[in-house]
C-alpha cells in the first residue's frame, strides 16, 4: 500500500530496489590474486607507467598493459577523517580515507586507513596494504595500515 507523506501538496513514498550483475572484465585478476595474498596490477611497458587501480588498456598510448606484482608498501599522500558520508557508509563512521603512494606504482591509490592511533596520522607516514579474510570482491577488500 502506498505510504502518504503529506496531503497538500500530495507527497507519496516510493521504494526502489535493483540488483546488477556487474563484470570487472579484464581487471578480474586484481581481485582473484587477493585470495592468494598477492597485489597484482597493470603496467604499460611502452609508457613506463604502472596503474593502480589496474587498467587493461593504457590511457596514454591505448596499448595493452601487462600484469605485475607490487609489494603493497608505501606512504600516505594525503588523508581525511570522515564524520559524515553517503547513506551506505554511515554505519562505518568515523573512518579515515587516504591516498597512498605505493612502491612501483605511478598513480596514487584511494583506500581506507585502519589504525588504533588516528591522531598520529600524517602525510608521508609509512603504510602497507592489507587484505580482508572475507573477500566481498570489492575495492574495499583492501585497506592500509601503519607499517611500523
Amino acid at each position: 500500500m502506498t505510504e502518504i507523506f503529506s496531503i497538500d501538496p500530495l507527497i507519496i513514498k516510493t521504494p526502489y530496489e535493483i540488483e546488477y550483475k556487474h563484470s570487472y572484465g579484464k581487471t578480474t585478476p586484481f581481485f582473484t590474486s587477493l585470495s592468494k595474498g598477492k597485489f597484482m596490477t597493470t603496467r604499460c611497458e611502452r609508457c613506463k607507467v604502472t596503474f593502480l587501480p589496474p587498467r587493461a588498456d593504457c590511457p596514454y598510448c591505448l596499448g595493452e598493459t601487462k600484469w605485475v606484482e607490487i609489494s603493497g608498501k608505501g606512504k600516505i599522500h594525503t588523508f581525511s577523517t570522515l564524520h559524515y558520508s553517503g547513506e551506505k557508509f554511515l554505519k562505518d563512521l568515523p573512518f579515515q580515507l587516504v591516498y597512498v603512494e605505493l612502491e612501483g606504482v605511478d598513480t596514487v591509490f584511494l583506500t581506507r586507513l585502519k589504525t588504533k592511533h588516528p591522531e598520529k596520522v600524517k602525510v608521508g607516514m609509512k603504510i602497507k596494504l592489507k587484505v580482508s579474510r572475507d573477500l566481498e570482491w570489492r575495492s574495499s577488500d583492501v585497506w592500509a595500515e601503519p607499517d611500523e
Binding site: H22, Y24, T27, P53, H77, T78, F79, S80, L82, Y84, S85, G86, K88, F89, D92, F95, L97, V98, Y99, L110, T111, R112, V123, R138, S139, S140
Partner: peptide, 26 residues
C-alpha cells in the same frame, strides 16, 4: 565517482575534496 574503485571505499564527495584540500594545505 568510479563505482568499482572509489565509491566502495566510502563514497562521499566531501571526503574526496577533503583529501585534495589536505594535500593543497600540505
Amino acid at each position: 565517482s568510479d563505482t568499482d574503485w572509489d565509491f566502495p571505499i566510502g563514497g562521499f564527495y566531501s571526503g574526496y575534496y577533503a583529501l585534495m584540500a589536505k594535500r593543497h594545505m600540505e
